[in-house]
Amino acid sequence: MKDRLIFALDVDSYDEARQWVRILADEVGMFKVGKQLFTRCGPQIVDMIRQAGGGVFLDLKYHDIPNTVAKAGIEAARMGVQMFNVHALGGGKMMRTMVDEVREAAVKEGFPVPITLAVTILTSSSEEDLRQVGIDLPVTQMVPRLATLARESGLHGVVASAQELPLIRQACGGDFVVVTPGVRPATAARDDQQRVMTPGEAIAAGSDYLVVGRPISKADDPVLAARSIVAEMTEAGA
């Protein structure tokens, strides 16, 4: 079950990232590298994690013209990341182009195709936030709509709140990968997340991977915190 736990490596230096990788490499399945860390450190941060035996979820949420996103996806795959994501709001053409060109490059160059994911609606977004940018449909309609578009475009899955999991499963089936951020143990603060579940609730609802950051990094004993989350996941998945 620990392979399904992803630690959010939301730090601002290479040395701090390396320290967390050393602490948690045996406790989690992947490390999420986001915009802050990748902008600071670049591909070397991915190399460091992989050399330590860890997997990488490259969380850069590509959203641009189809050709640009496709080329970025190829470079992500060349780095050897296990998964990366794009914004579903970029549209079907953008996602299909990326999927096709990554697969073509993988065949030509002999690298594995990562798990490709689409971000539906950020877990920090409220419906009022969506209305401010012109999206009048509720989250419960937008998420399965975007998930279906991602599936039809050839992506492996989505990043979405566990609270929308039943809607995604109904729309896309049980073999569609769902990566769930915004996971908080019952005793942890919500921080800036709006739509959250506990690790056990998320696994019971059918999440494939959980992304957890501050409940581990801010714990008095991060290793114990990670193990406690894995234990809760295991119990819920039994």
Rank of each mutant, 00 (worst) to 15 (best):
M1F: 04
R4N: 11
L5M: 06
E16Y: 01
A17S: 14
A17V: 02
R18C: 15
Q19I: 07
W20E: 01
L24D: 00
F31E: 03
F31M: 10
K32V: 13
G34K: 09
L37P: 04
L37T: 01
R40G: 13
I45Y: 06
G53R: 03
V56H: 05
F57V: 01
L60P: 08
H63I: 08
I65W: 06
G73H: 03
M79T: 11
N85K: 07
H87D: 05
A88T: 05
A88R: 10
A88P: 03
L89S: 15
G92V: 10
K93F: 13
T97S: 07
M98L: 10
D100W: 03
E101K: 13
V102N: 00
E109K: 07
G110K: 08
F111T: 04
V113A: 00
T116A: 09
L117F: 11
A118N: 12
L122T: 05
S126V: 07
D129Q: 05
L130A: 12
G134F: 07
G134E: 08
G134I: 11
D136A: 11
L137P: 11
L137S: 10
V139G: 01
M142G: 13
R145Y: 13
A147E: 08
A150S: 08
R151Q: 11
S161H: 05
E164A: 01
E164G: 02
Q170P: 11
Q170K: 15
Q170L: 08
G173Q: 03
D175A: 06
F176Y: 05
V179M: 14
G182E: 03
P185K: 10
A188W: 14
D192N: 09
Q194N: 04
V196M: 08
V196F: 02
M197W: 12
T198A: 07
P199T: 14
G200A: 07
A204G: 15
A205P: 07
G206I: 04
S207W: 12
P215F: 02
K218E: 15
A219C: 03
P222L: 10
L224R: 15
S228F: 01
I229N: 03
I229D: 12
A231N: 13
M233Y: 04
E235R: 10
A236W: 04
A236M: 04
G237T: 05
